[in-house]
């Protein structure tokens, strides 16, 4: 009877409450474990409540492009048009960008680092990304100022942009401000801008600062072409927090602390946590190895003892009557 009562209380959990619980689980568990528990959980996990936020950036770094496209299509289809956040790395095929754009009517946060989309693809899909307020196109080396201009003209609500570059991709190249001019001329509502290791120069930054009055955070670490006077910044832009160009730990710490309430910044904090976790894992692994070694030594000792026993038995065999 008590069990029946408990069962009834669990049945009362309606799909959206279950969905909230499942969103706290890893992708692997949502896809492979939860659907095999019972019918109601299988139905809840394939419904839209679980997939309004899709974050497979970590997973996508380890799988093949075609697998990634298939999984992404499956998950986006499950969201049934309610997709709000999408984070995926390394997309390559043009059709998957079109698929994302076709299902972006509720999308406000889009992270596509290391993707292979080019200016032409961006031109095709930008019109459907009008609800985007945060966009991450870091390490997308095939897009340029024209793509950023198309994004700025179509995404009127854009408040956050990540355009970080990898140092190896930008080393030994001349400074260019075309992307900075595109940002300055089409993204007036920007509050958060990251352009680490970008080829931007001082004049580009000044253009952005002059045309984005709401800017609160600017990450220009590794932008060696930028030289701005701190006193000048404090006087002209008192609300602005600037990181770099020098890469210093204290700056990083200050930056994250100041923006800890922003959801996107908290994601970065989560990343730091994962990195720390990895370190701990290695330590634990070492302990495991030591444990195994001890176990092996113990086995050897046991064998030796066994042989001793036999010898003793032989030595003390009683004489024949």
């Amino acid at each position: 009877m008590e069990e029946a009562c408990e069962f009834r209380s669990w049945a009362e959990l309606i799909p959206d409450a279950l969905g909230v619980i499942f969103t706290n689980l890893s992708l692997q568990e949502r896809v492979t474990v939860i659907p095999r528990v019972c019918k109601s959980w299988a139905n809840a996990v394939t419904g839209p409540y679980c997939w309004q936020e899709i974050d497979i950036k970590d997973w996508s770094n380890r799988c093949q492009p075609d697998q990634l496209d298939r999984l992404l299509e499956m998950l986006i289809t499950r969201s049934c048009g309610t997709l709000r956040k999408l984070s995926v790395s390394g997309l390559q095929t043009e059709s998957i960008f079109t698929f994302i754009a076709e299902n972006a009517c509720s999308l406000h946060t889009l992270r596509l680092p290391r993707s292979s989309m080019n200016d032409s693809i961006v031109e095709q899909i930008a019109g459907r990304l009008s609800m985007i307020s945060f966009l991450d196109v870091s390490y997308c080396i095939k897009i340029g100022p024209y793509a950023l201009e198309m994004i700025g003209k179509n995404c009127k609500l854009l408040e956050g942009l990540c355009r970080n570059m990898h140092p190896l991709d930008t080393a030994e190249k001349p400074h260019q401000d075309d992307e900075a001019y595109a940002i300055a001329s089409t993204m007036p509502k920007l509050k958060h801008l990251e352009m680490a290791y970008h080829l931007i120069s001082t004049s580009g930054v000044l253009q952005i600062l002059a045309n984005c009055p709401k800017l609160e955070f600017l990450d220009q670490r590794g932008c060696w072409g930028v030289t701005l006077d701190h006193m000048f910044l404090k006087q002209k832009f008192p609300k602005l927090k600037v990181l770099g160009p020098l890469v210093l730990d204290t700056y990083e710490s200050d930056g994250w602390d100041d923006f800890s309430d922003v959801s996107d910044s908290s994601e970065y904090l989560a990343w730091d946590f994962v990195a720390g976790g990895m370190g701990e894992y290695y330590v634990d692994d070492s302990d495991s190895y030591d444990g195994m070694w001890d176990d092996e030594a113990r086995l050897d000792e046991l064998q030796f003892g066994f042989y001793e026993g036999i010898e003793d038995a032989g030595m003390y065999w009683p004489p024949s009557p």
């Binding site: 890893s26 994962v274 990195a275 990895m278 692994d285």
Partner: peptide, 10 residues
């Protein structure tokens, strides 16, 4: 899966 799970398992 996630690194976090590795911590849990070890």
């Amino acid at each position: 899966g996630q690194e976090r799970k590795m911590m849990l398992f070890t």
